[in-house]
Every structure is written in C-alpha cells, then in structure tokens.
C-alpha cells in the first residue's frame, strides 16, 4: 500500500507541474502588454516600464515561470491585471460560494443517482428501470444551463416558490441560503447523477450475473442478503472511481451554472478573466482547479485500493 501511495502521489505531482507549464505558456500567447492593462492607456512610458520591471515581465520566460511557480506554491499568484487585487485573494473570496455549490451539487448527484441506478439495475426492464433510463437519457442530453433556466421558469417565475438569482451565505441565514441553493444544485448535479445512475445500473446487472451470486442464492440465502451482502458491495466498488472522475465535470459545469444564477464564485471570476484577457488570473485559477482535480483523483484511487485489495497488488 505504501509504494502504491507514493507512486500515485508522484504521478499526481508530475501531472500538476506539466499542467502548470502548459497553462503558463499557452497564456503567454495572449496578445497585448499586461503592464498596459494594469496602468491604463494614459500612463507614461516610464510608468509602464516600471510596472513591467515590478511584474518581472522583462525577465526571460523560463525565469518568469519559475518565479510564478515559486509564488504559487506559497499561495501568491501575483496581481490580477484587471481586478485591482491579488489573484490569491480573489480566489479565496470566490472559493466559499463555489465550494458550497459544488459540494451541494455532488451530494445531490450521489444521493439521487446511486439509488436510481440500484433500482434500475435490480429489476432491468421493470418500471423503475424505464423511469431511470428515461431520466438519464434526458439529463445527459440537456445542457445544465438549459435545465437551470427551466427550473427558474417553473419554480421561480411561474410558481414563485424560490428566489431566482443570487446567494445568501449559510452563516447569515441557513434557510434562505438553502432556498437560493436548491435550483443551482440540481442544475449542477443532474448530469453527474445520470452518469452515476447509468454506471451503477450496469455494474449491478453485471454483478448479479456472477457465479458467487448464484452460489449465494443456491445455498438458500434470502434475496435481501444476497443483494445487500454479496452483490451490492462488489457492484459499488468501481463506482468510487467514476464518482471521483465526475468531480472535474462538476466543476466545469458549475462555471456555467453560476452564470445562470448570477452566483458569485469561480465561474464569474474566470469568465471575467477570459473577457478581460487577464492571464495572471486565469493561470492561477487553472492551476488551483487542476490541483483540486488531481488530489481528488488520487484520493479516489487510494480509496479504491482500500476498498478492493486486488487493485493494490496489480
């Protein structure tokens, strides 16, 4: 287990470093002088030169990369070119609302998708399976922003049950915060719920065909015991990996859903960066997101190894 962990950790670090190199050099393709963005167009040539010096823009690119990386490791991502603040601080402020949405959406996906897949997989061809398959096909096909708008139109505009856009912090008013969170949470999590439901269904159907399930039935165990003790435990192990991989898609999806519901967070920050061509902001955010993604995947692999001893050996 120890060497498995170290190997995965090393792989993860290599991936993050490579990703940071990719991001850093792709971002340098952005035309225009960031110093000019920072000081404004009416600044004198000396001012611009001074800012270039301060940002280290006169250094060779490779030097710039290592300076930036050294800062990033310490949480210093440099100044944003358009927002008049440190990138690190901007991300810290955006983190809480985004994390709130991502976690809520993920919990929704797990709590909805896995039971749905179980119901469908235990009785393939039954009414539960039809309902689940219909739901997953529709949800896999609908863009999350369209789903969000439909929710808004029905639940907020027509019925007036929920507030449309914005956010209230959980620490300020928990009930109101949840009311603001319900629709974005569903819009973010529905796609992941569908992927999970599909996967769980297939996994359970496959497990129920295994010899050991037949053996368990043949020796007269109750169906309930067969399903819970023998089939379910084996069927749900591979779900860990799929569930973890979905986190990346969830984060991607949250960016757009945040725009629909006008929620503050990583989404609006990133889009602001794209519109303003603020590469300092974009590269900081990308590296943080990639790190989150890699950490989650590594943890998932480790959890998979713990849940299924066969993986560790191979």
């Amino acid at each position: 287990m120890g060497s498995f962990l170290i190997r995965r950790l090393a792989q993860g670090i290599v991936t993050v470093v490579l990703a940071s190199i990719l991001v850093f050099f792709v971002m340098r393709l952005i035309p225009g002088d960031p110093a000019l963005l920072l000081v404004g167009t009416d600044a004198s040539a000396e001012d611009i030169e001074q800012v270039r010096e301060r940002l280290g823009l006169n250094e060779p690119l490779v030097q710039q990369y290592f300076d930036w990386l050294a800062g990033a490791v310490r949480g210093d991502f440099g100044p944003s070119f358009t927002k008049g603040a440190e990138v690190g601080n901007l991300m810290r402020v955006a983190l809480i609302p985004s994390a709130e949405l991502a976690v809520a959406g993920y919990v929704f996906a797990l709590a909805f998708g896995i039971p749905l897949g179980i119901v469908a997989g235990l009785k393939p061809g039954g009414p539960g399976d039809y309902a689940a398959t219909g739901f997953t096909m529709f949800t896999l096909g609908i863009p999350n922003f369209v789903l969000g708008i439909i929710l808004i139109w029905v639940l907020a505009v027509l019925l007036g049950w929920l507030p449309i856009t914005g956010r209230v912090g959980i620490d300020e008013d928990p009930v109101e915060a949840l009311r603001f969170l319900v629709m974005p949470m569903i819009a973010v999590g529905a796609g992941t719920a569908a992927v999970l439901a599909r996967f769980v269904r297939a996994s359970i159907m496959e497990t129920l065909n295994q010899d050991y399930v037949r053996t368990a039935r043949a020796k007269g165990l109750r169906e309930r015991t067969v399903v819970m003790r023998h089939a379910m435990r084996n069927a749900l192990i591979p779900v860990i990996t799929v569930a973890a991989l979905q986190i990346g898609f969830l984060i991607s999806g949250a960016v757009i859903v945040e725009v629909v519901f006008a929620r503050p967070g990583f989404g609006s920050l990133l889009i602001g960066g794209v519109v303003g061509r603020d590469y300092q902001l974009i590269q900081g955010m990308l590296v943080v997101l990639v790190t989150v993604f890699v950490v989650v995947n590594t943890l998932a692999d480790v959890a998979y190894g713990l849940a299924d001893p066969r993986i560790r050996v191979s």
């Binding site: 898609f249 991607s252 061509r277 997101l289 993604f293």
Partner: peptide, 20 residues
Amino acid sequence: IVDALMAMPALILILAMTAA
C-alpha cells in the same frame, strides 16, 4: 502530456485557451 490535458476540466481549459 495527455494525462496533464485530461487532468484539467475540459470546459475550463477551453475557456483559458479561448482567452489566449
């Protein structure tokens, strides 16, 4: 390189490249 590309959430990577 493939791993690094696939480690980034696709939409966010595309957004960043679009900015460039």
